[in-house]
């Protein structure tokens, strides 16, 4: 039993009539860290979060919360320790403050303390001015912030957020990101959030967990694309809807591919190499992690490239600069619905 782990899962599977949607062997989440859960639609992100929140029972496997097996004990106390904010949070048909107080009412928190905690939670998400508003009249982004406040009010050990910035305007998305960072720093809360936005996942989290067809991948996949494999002038390509990426071989049922960020070459000049995939674009983000820098280049798709800090300095790369990128078709990993190839 290791209490440094907020959650440990073993052999977690979920099978519906349509098939297996989740099959996670071993996975641990360290206390006080932020985890970004990424993967294409249908990869099992929401199912995993719902199982972790003890709202959906797994078909098999165990969940340990702080070393205690809670798989078969979805009691109100267990759920209070690990709270999920849904992608489209439901607001109860009442005021914002009563919505935030709901969890506290369930836990019989005295009225005076309840008032203070509601105000504190609303302040944490910058919604204290909306306390008396009917929660149903709020915008999508505001509802998400209230939902986060509602979860924070009960002080869970672990906060699960299902696509917290999906369908939210830029301003609210930025605020939600700030809230996630702040509550992790101030309360040391373990946070697991799912997202389609890889940049956001890497920006916010200490570790990115990639799910593909219900399975966690050994390494974090930085460049995942969904689309269809097709032939163009006899050449196998993967069409994402925005970009055509040349594949090493043609595999009809490939629906997702990933490109290793270490295998992508970045250059200020047009690349002249044997690499079959060449794109031009603009640097939109640079993130330093130790002596490595992750550069995000926006072409028809966003590509993340890992380079050394020294290379960045020597090349004089900066945000907004036009660059060229290239990678070999052999750098691509193809994924089939039945599993990794």
């Amino acid at each position: 039993m290791n209490t440094d782990y907020a959650i440990q899962i073993t052999g977690l599977t979920k099978v519906y009539n349509t098939g297996t949607v989740l099959n996670v062997g071993e996975r641990s989440f360290i206390r006080g860290k932020i985890y970004g859960l990424v993967g294409p639609n249908g990869s099992g992100k929401s199912t995993l979060l719902s199982i972790l929140a003890h709202l959906t029972p797994p078909t098999a496997g165990t969940i340990l919360l702080s070393g205690t097996d809670t798989t078969l004990l979805p009691s109100p106390e267990t759920r209070r320790r690990i709270t999920l904010v849904h992608q489209e949070p439901v607001m109860f048909h009442t005021s914002v403050k009563k919505n935030v107080a709901m969890g506290l009412i369930y836990h019989d928190v005295p009225k005076q303390e309840r008032k203070l905690r509601v105000l504190e939670a609303l302040r944490a998400v910058g919604m204290e001015g909306f306390a008396t508003r009917n929660a149903r009249t709020l915008s999508g982004g505001e509802k998400k912030r209230v939902a986060v406040a509602r979860a924070l009010a009960i002080s869970p050990d672990i906060l699960l957020l299902d696509e917290p910035t999906a369908n939210v305007d830029g301003t609210n998305a930025g605020r939600i990101e700030q809230i996630i960072r702040r509550i992790n720093e101030t309360a040391g809360m373990t946070i697991i959030f799912s997202t389609h936005n890889l940049n956001q996942a890497y920006r916010l989290s200490h570790e990115v967990v990639t799910l593909m067809y219900g399975k966690t991948q050994g390494t974090s996949l930085m460049n995942i694309f969904s689309g269809v494999a097709e032939k163009e002038n006899g050449e196998p390509v993967f069409y994402t809807g925005r970009a055509r990426i040349k594949l090493p071989v043609f595999e009809k049922d490939v629906q997702q591919i990933s490109v290793n960020p270490n295998d992508i070459i970045i250059s200020k000049e047009p690349v002249s190499s044997s690499a079959r995939n060449c794109f031009s674009g603009q640097i939109i983000e640079m993130m330093k992690d130790g002596d490595r820098v992750t550069v995000t280049v926006r072409t028809d798709e966003d590509f993340r490239i890992t380079v050394t800090d020294r290379s960045v300095r020597e090349m004089g790369l900066f945000i907004g600069e036009e660059v060229s990128i290239a990678f070999k078709a052999s750098s691509i990993t193809m994924y089939h619905p039945q599993g990794e190839m």
Binding site: S50, A53, L55, P76, E77, R79, R80, T83, L84, H86, E88, P89, V90, F92, H93, M102, G103, Y106, H107, R150, A151, I154
Partner: peptide, 26 residues
């Protein structure tokens, strides 16, 4: 009634009866 009402109540620590009441209230 949105099925998430029940799930939201449960994830906030409601007992099954309290969650049912939340749905009924909605």
């Amino acid at each position: 009634i949105n099925p998430l009402v029940r799930q939201t109540a449960l994830t906030l620590g409601a007992s099954p009866f309290q969650a049912s009441m939340a749905v009924f209230f909605e």
